[in-house]
């Protein structure tokens, strides 16, 4: 099976706090890989290691390898001894699209939310930007609702609409991999369902790594399921996925009261 993400012996620390400890993780080039774990287990940090976003949050020390398929086979994204240097950070982050738990629209108009990164990061011409805005908004099913008010502030959209706009914004940059950090956690049931539908569709075309805290959602979406606990991977299911009840019990089983080895 072709891999889009390969993490080997990866450890990460913020100052003295070790968040990830010798993690092995891989994700296939098609389908949704779901990361589950209790809060504080390091799943979000692992996700943010895949586009090196942890480095914007403070002093970070890393060890080990993270390789991503950004279009030319697996390549290192952290500097390694005796190897050519990785791509510049901004390029890595552009090729790895990310959507956050809370819909982080920029405080600009709907169109500008998509256009600004395209203009600054991709340096595209206005004509092409226009086309892409339309294309991406169609992709996430937002075009019909917003076509008539593209120039109004994105902050007036509903939670679900905002989250779809964030997805559209990530897709507009033509990412090779999509990272999703509990993308439905701040949405109501209805909006969450429509986002899940959308993600299933996108999973056919993109490698997606998704962090979830909801066992049922993990069951619905996952083509591969990884359970994390205290900065380590404790379970990995590739073929026969467990049901929601099993996942729930797995999360309980590895509670922090258990002594860590």
């Amino acid at each position: 099976m072709q891999l889009a993400v390969l993490v080997e012996n990866f450890s990460l620390a913020f100052g003295e706090d070790i968040i990830l400890n010798d993690v092995h993780f891989s994700a296939p080039s098609k389908g949704i890989s779901v990361l589950v774990g209790r809060s504080g287990s390091g799943k979000t940090t692992l996700l943010r290691s895949l586009n090196r976003l942890n480095e914007t949050l403070g002093q970070v020390k890393t060890r080990g390898r993270v390789r991503l398929d950004l279009g030319q086979g697996l390549e290192d994204i952290y500097p390694q001894d005796n190897a050519p240097a990785p791509r510049p950070l901004s390029e890595i982050r552009r090729l790895v699209g990310m959507v956050f738990q809370t819909p982080n629209v920029l405080p600009l108009s709907i169109a500008q939310n998509i256009a600004l990164p395209l203009r600054i990061v991709r340096k595209l011409q206005p004509e092409e930007i226009k086309q892409r805005i339309r294309h991406c908004l169609c992709q996430v099913g937002l075009w019909e609702e917003t076509a008539h008010r593209l120039e109004t502030s994105a902050e007036n959209l509903s939670g679900g609409q905002k989250q779809r706009l964030c997805l559209a914004r990530a897709l507009a940059l033509e990412p090779a991999i999509l990272l999703l950090d509990e993308p439905t956690a701040s949405l109501d049931v209805h909006a969450a369902t429509s986002i899940e539908e959308l993600l299933k569709e996108l999973g056919e075309r993109y490698p997606i790594v998704l962090v979830s805290h909801n066992p049922r959602q993990a069951c619905r979406l996952a083509s591969q399921l990884t359970v994390m606990e205290a900065g380590r991977i404790v379970n990995n299911f590739c073929h026969e996925l467990p049901d929601a009840q099993t996942i729930k019990s797995l999360l309980k089983e590895h509670s922090p009261s258990e002594t860590m080895s």
Binding site: P79, N82, A83, P84, A85, P86, P88, L89
Partner: peptide, 11 residues
């Protein structure tokens, strides 16, 4: 290596 250092510099 040299290329590495240049890239590091760029970052």
């Amino acid at each position: 290596p040299k290329s590495d250092r240049a890239a590091q510099k760029r970052q």
